[in-house]
Amino acid sequence: MGAELGKYKSCVSARSTDKEILKGAQDGGIVTSLFAYALEAGIIDGAIVAGKGDLPWKPEPVVATTRAELLAARGTRYNISPNMSLIKEVTRSYGLDKVGIVGTPCQMQAVRKAQLYPFGLREVGDKIALAVGIFCMENFPYQSVLQLVEDHAAMKMESVKKMEIGKGKFWVFGERGQVVQLPLKVTHKYEQPGCHVCLDYVANMADISTGSVGSPDGWSTIFVRSKIGDSVWAKAMAAGCFETKPMETVKPGLELVTKLANEKISKNRKTLEERASFGTGKGLRNPYL
């Protein structure tokens, strides 16, 4: 394939140097640290992040304009946060001129489509100052997570401390220290169907993309992709926000990222092919045509 990791200017393994951020971070605290730095440096006025929703482990897109608000949104919740839904509002009632946004690869695609084909997004595209993408194999509807945690892992949503997908398992960590692991075979059927036509694993269209895959525990893999990403990353590094290791020196390394990216892309290409002849002489729609 060769294009599975998208275009990038540099790739490193990194971890935030901010102890407070790391305490509640999913992995290396990259997204929170980047936005916290960008806020402080005036690169952004605020960022659309996945904040806390009205139910336990349900995310809600929020506009974070302070470090405290960013900290409150740390960590991964494995279900859908429609961050793009705020992209116009953030420039209107919130009045931001320089917007940060974090999202999955599909949401980064939505950001770029919004900039190139802004049908209903007037004066939004040029206000997107930093788009941070996160690696994503698939996402779940809220009800799927509910079922996985309460029915399969037999834990209450309220008592879950952290969820994680890694090492081929779906991990649920409880407040009391109990750990349940579900094989991914169990979780597959609960995935959001729209994810199965996605051809992007490492957020190819973000300014900077990041995810745990490829780096050791507590660290994240970073791809710096665009000119904006390059400049923000250089400034954040100069400000001492991150400690880094060359990607070639870390354990699973880029090889694993490439392997998983290829797995996702070829699986979903196959899905697209099957969709083309889904019925008898009739197929399902292909958004890429």
């Binding site: 859908i80 429609p82 839904s85 939505a110 996402n139 009800q143 959001q192 169907p193 969709r275």
Partner: peptide, 30 residues
Amino acid sequence: TSVINQGLCMGCGSCAAACPVRAITMEFGK
């Protein structure tokens, strides 16, 4: 009809943002 019924929606929220009359809200990611 052309996105959710076709199994394509991934819940990004672009539709809700683009709507000029706020006819679309995102509920449970859709």
